[in-house]
Write a protein that binds this DNA or RNA. Sequence first.
DNA 1: AACAGTGTATTAACCACTTAGTACACCGTC
DNA 2: GACGGTGTACTAAGTGGTTAATACACTGTT
Lengths: 126, 126
Amino acid sequence: MNIQFNNRDPVYIQVIQHFKLQIAKGFLESGDVIPSRRELASQLKINPNTAQRAYKEMEEEGLIKTEKNQPSKVTHDQDVLRGVRNELIDEAVSQFVDSVKSINVPLEDAMKLIETHYKEKGDSND
Amino acid sequence: MNIQFNNRDPVYIQVIQHFKLQIAKGFLESGDVIPSRRELASQLKINPNTAQRAYKEMEEEGLIKTEKNQPSKVTHDQDVLRGVRNELIDEAVSQFVDSVKSINVPLEDAMKLIETHYKEKGDSND
DNA sequence: AACAGTGTATTAACCACTTAGTACACCGTC
DNA sequence: GACGGTGTACTAAGTGGTTAATACACTGTT
C-alpha cells in the first residue's frame, strides 16, 4: 500500500481514486477487506479523518460496506464493481475527445498519437 | 468573450486555459490585442486582480507581450504559439494513455472507444 | 472490568485562492 | 494640464475546502 500523492488534488480524492484503480484492475475484489481508517492513515502518513472522509464517500458510492466494527469490505455488488471500471474508462475517453475536439484535432491524428504514445511507454504495474 | 467557469480549478488558471484554447484553435493569432485587465475583469465578472494574475502568468510563459501602456498582445513568436497547441495535445494524449494503461485497457479497445465517442458528439465551436 | 481495536462525529485550525481597497507611474487625448 | 485609460504592486480581509485534534460509542478479547 503506497500512493504517490500530488499536491494538486485533495488527498481524500486521491485515496478514493487509488481504491477505484485497484478495483478496476481487479486487485481488489468483492468481499476483500481493506485497512481500518487508522491503519490506512498510518500507512499513508495522512490524518485519520482524511482516511475517514475517503471511506465515507466510498461507502456512499456503494463501493465498500462497513458493518458494526468490522473492517470495511469491498461491496459484493458486481455491477458496482464493473461500473467503476467503466466509469474510469468513459471519463478518460470523454475527457480526451473533448480536449482534442476543442482544438480541432482530426480523429486520424488523435488516433495516431495515441497509438504511438501507447506503445512507447512501458507497462504500468504496481 | 465568455468563460464557463467550473468551481474546481482556480479562476486565473481557467482564464489562462481559455486563452490557450483560443490560440490553439487559431482564433487568437500573433499580434492580436487582448482586453485590458480591467476590461476582462468586467466582462467575466471577476476581480481585476484575478485577471492580472492570469495575464502575469501568460506574460511569464511568453504567451503575451505587454509594452508601456499599450494593450497586451499575443506574442509574435510563432514557435511559442505552435507550442501551445502541441502542449495541449500532448497533455491530452499522455493523460489518456496513462489512465487507460493504468487499468489495463488494450490499445485496440481504447482506439475503438475514441473513434465511437469522437463521431458521436457534435463539433465544439464557440 | 480493563483494554485495544473498530467506526463515527464535532470542532478548530490551516491554507490557497479570491476579492477588496489603494496606490503609483505612464501615456494619449481633449 | 486635467482626465481617463493603461499596466503594475502591495496589503488586508474574506471564503471554502481540506486537514488536524479530540472525543464518543461500540465490540471482542483478555
